[in-house]
Design a protein around this nucleic acid. Structure first.
Length: 284
DNA sequence: CCTCATTCCTGCGGGC
DNA sequence: TGCCCGCAGGAATGAG
């Protein structure tokens, strides 16, 4: 996280507050924040100064802002990235990494990122999708998402179902929180081998991913602390509606069994041990 | 091509 | 009180 719903909340904020405005001075305060920009920080800033942002797009967890120059400003929030619209007189945030002033001298855009897993880059327009996103699959809220192709590709995998969901080349926008929530809703254990899923189960899982993301979007996203906020610094409240993620020890709202936490891929997976029993060889 | 472990980063909280 | 360690985890990268 932030995952698709949180990134979409940010995209909507950018659409409302920065699209149509000409950029002024751009200042890179942290090199790592623009490490994906091949030409370096000065080049990054030069390509942006004076250009007007014409739109705000998203695929999965990636955001991009097309410019009137034909280039696009591409961004990923990583673990802790924020894009904030702030009045210029507001003191700099501790982890301010890039500042975007505007020629209209109104509010500025700030990229703030505590852990610097996120980053920004400028690249030339690729007629629709930025080249750097060529390997990122469509996300489940994309009207062009191909449900049948997803179900078939998921069942062709030879791995656990949650590993597959976190693979952004198969389906994008799903992270640890929404993977656990969708699997709880089905319900299905995260280690279920993908090749044992029926087509109907694969499609049902996709439906739950869509449902939980849509619900979260309606709540303004999921926030566990002040890190996950919209462009105005406000938190969503979907954390109150989580049924599995972060609920270790609390009773499953469906059956009452205490939710368990398992180590998984250097992070955690949360399941109901009763509703989502671990698959065993020859028996699921 | 496919799968999977490793690595990057900072703040917080628990344990001693 | 202070220090150390684990944990939070998206995605590029390279090994096998």
């Amino acid at each position: 996280m932030p995952e698709l719903p949180e990134v979409e909340v940010v995209r909507r904020g950018l659409e409302a507050w920065v699209v149509g405005r000409p950029l002024g001075e751009v200042t890179v305060l942290n090199l790592r924040a623009v490490r994906r920009h091949v030409g370096g920080p000065a080049h990054f800033a030069d390509l942006l100064a004076g250009r007007t942002i014409t739109a705000a797009h998203r695929r999965g967890k990636y955001l991009w802002l097309p410019l009137d120059s034909g280039d696009v400003l591409l961004g990923h929030l990583g673990m802790s990235g924020q894009l904030l619209v702030q009045q210029p007189q507001v003191p700099d945030e501790t982890h301010l990494r890039v500042r975007f002033r505007f020629a209209d001298e109104g509010s500025e855009l700030r990229f703030v990122d505590q852990r610097t897993f996120g980053g920004l880059a400028v690249e030339s327009d690729a007629d629709g999708l930025p080249r750097a996103l060529a390997h990122i699959a469509a996300d489940p809220l994309d009207p062009d998402f191909d449900d049948d192709a997803f179900a078939a590709a998921l069942r062709r995998r030879r791995t656990g179902v949650k590993r597959a969901l976190l693979d952004q080349t198969l389906i994008s926008g799903v992270g640890n929180v929404y993977a656990d929530e969708a699997l709880w809703r089905l319900p299905l254990h995260y280690a279920r081998p993908t090749e044992t899923l029926t087509r109907a189960q694969a499609l049902a899982l996709l439906g739950h991913i869509r449902d939980v993301m849509t619900d979260a979007l309606g709540a303004g996203g999921t926030s566990f602390d002040a890190l996950y906020v919209n462009v105005n610094g406000q938190s969503g409240y979907f954390d109150r509606s989580l049924n599995a993620y972060g609920q270790e020890g609390k009773p499953c709202v469906r059956c009452g069994a205490p939710i368990r936490r398992d180590p998984f891929m250097n992070r955690s997976s949360f399941t109901c041990p009763h509703c989502q029993p671990r698959p065993r060889r020859g028996r699921w």
